[in-house]
Lab assay of single mutants.
Amino acid sequence: NQESVVAAQLIPINTALTLVMMTTRVVSPTGIPAEDIPRLISMQVNQVVPMGTTLMPDMVKGYA
């Protein structure tokens, strides 16, 4: 089963992602794949992401 990127903390809107903000977990439905974490660093979220929420492609500016 593929791991997806999950918020390790509350991420406010327009925050640039850092490694410490993200963790990985096997979730359903699947979100952004864990191997894309290096690509996500410094990208901004376009909404508030509560802790434990799976990051979906449409939540990250410039990802999709």
Rank of each mutant, 00 (worst) to 15 (best):
N1L: 15
Q2S: 10
Q2K: 04
E3H: 06
E3W: 04
E3F: 07
E3I: 05
S4M: 03
S4H: 02
V5F: 01
V5E: 01
V5A: 10
V6K: 03
V6R: 02
A7C: 03
A7Q: 01
Q9V: 05
Q9L: 08
Q9W: 05
L10D: 11
L10Q: 10
L10I: 08
L10K: 07
I13T: 07
I13L: 10
N14Y: 06
T15S: 04
T15I: 05
A16M: 13
A16Q: 10
A16Y: 06
L17P: 02
L17N: 00
L19N: 12
L19V: 08
L19W: 08
L19P: 13
V20I: 13
V20Y: 06
M21V: 06
M21F: 15
M21Y: 06
M22V: 12
T23N: 11
T23A: 12
T24K: 10
R25S: 15
R25C: 07
V26R: 02
V26I: 09
V26T: 13
V26P: 12
V26A: 11
V27L: 08
V27E: 04
V27R: 06
S28F: 12
S28G: 08
S28K: 03
P29E: 14
T30P: 13
T30E: 14
T30N: 14
G31M: 03
G31R: 03
I32H: 01
I32G: 00
P33T: 14
P33N: 06
A34N: 07
A34I: 08
A34K: 10
A34Q: 10
E35W: 04
D36Q: 15
D36N: 11
I37C: 05
I37L: 09
P38V: 09
P38N: 10
P38M: 05
L40M: 07
I41P: 03
I41E: 07
M43C: 04
Q44I: 08
V45W: 02
N46R: 12
N46D: 09
Q47P: 02
Q47A: 08
Q47M: 11
V48G: 11
V49Q: 01
V49I: 15
V49S: 01
P50L: 10
P50E: 10
P50W: 09
M51K: 12
M51N: 10
G52T: 06
T53A: 09
T53Y: 12
T54G: 03
M56R: 12
P57V: 13
D58S: 15
D58H: 15
D58R: 10
M59F: 10
M59E: 01
V60L: 11
V60N: 02
K61W: 08
K61I: 07
G62L: 11
G62W: 06
A64H: 14
A64M: 13
A64G: 14
